[in-house]
Design a protein around this nucleic acid. Structure first.
Lengths: 138, 138
DNA sequence: CTTAGTGCAAATCATTTGCAATAAG
DNA sequence: CTTATTGCAAATGATTTGCACTAAG
């Protein structure tokens, strides 16, 4: 199968980014994580040997531009989530334990439509849904 | 009409907050504003004689808790908006000039319902819609 | 009065930046 | 090779805090 189907090919390459140890590590840490992580938590999990904190910020920015991760601001704290699927959807995050669940629909389009009618262009949206998950609200 | 209908009564009092010069000023500045303002812009408009910058932050926090203002994070910058109506709705903000328009509907409930079915309680949401207004996209 | 609210200066926290050294393609 | 990426240390910017003083109710 040589260089035919580069199956689980490096997503970094595909996004046109150089594949560096830091980037691979950050991406993996986010993919392993069960909930969104802060830049600091990511840096801690990656380890200072692999990558400096300032670099974690730079990496998160490039991964964000490449749509490999998604930024989220929860209660004023910046968190990152891997961008797994291509299909647009939203999440709900537990304010206590940060457990995260996908809510596969996106119902914003009627609002975007209205905004378009009002003359707005290049419309983007970001929806933060939070709550207390069953474990935390008990 | 003495102390009968306290018509345009002080919203601060009604919210159970002490009516201080700083709070009145911050509230008024936000109400006058045609677009969301940053804490720093608010401080500038209020004037240092009326109120210290640190106090502006404290005031914004208490006004936020009292639902007299709404916090908004646009492109990483924190902005504040007066909370005029009681009826829940969303806004769209121009990323360039920050012009703001209300989109009176809120279509999030189906998503909240789904989250509730997943066991989440005390669900809250925050939606950021941005675009370029007709003037800015021209 | 009594306590919440405030000014001021210092502390903290998150994020960014310059620059020289390093490594990916 | 050539240029993007990184480490390090320092700079920045935003927000918070301690404490003594002031004013609202």
């Amino acid at each position: 199968m040589r260089h035919s189907h580069p199956k689980a090919a490096n997503p970094l390459r595909e996004a046109g980014l150089k594949s560096t140890p830091g980037r691979r590590a950050v991406l993996q840490v986010l993919q392993m994580a069960s909930s969104p992580l802060s830049p600091d938590q990511i840096h801690a999990k990656v380890g200072s040997e692999i990558c400096d904190r300032a670099t974690v910020y730079r990496i998160l920015e490039s991964l964000g531009e490449a749509s490999l991760v998604q930024r989220l601001i929860l209660e004023g704290k910046t968190l990152y989530l891997p961008e797994e699927s291509n299909h647009h959807h939203h999440h709900i995050v537990c304010r206590k334990c940060r457990a995260t669940v996908c809510l596969d629909e996106c119902l914003i389009s009627p609002l975007e439509k209205k905004a378009r009618q009002l003359g707005f262009r290049d419309i983007r949206h970001s929806l933060q849904l939070t709550g207390l998950c069953s474990k935390c609200s008990g």
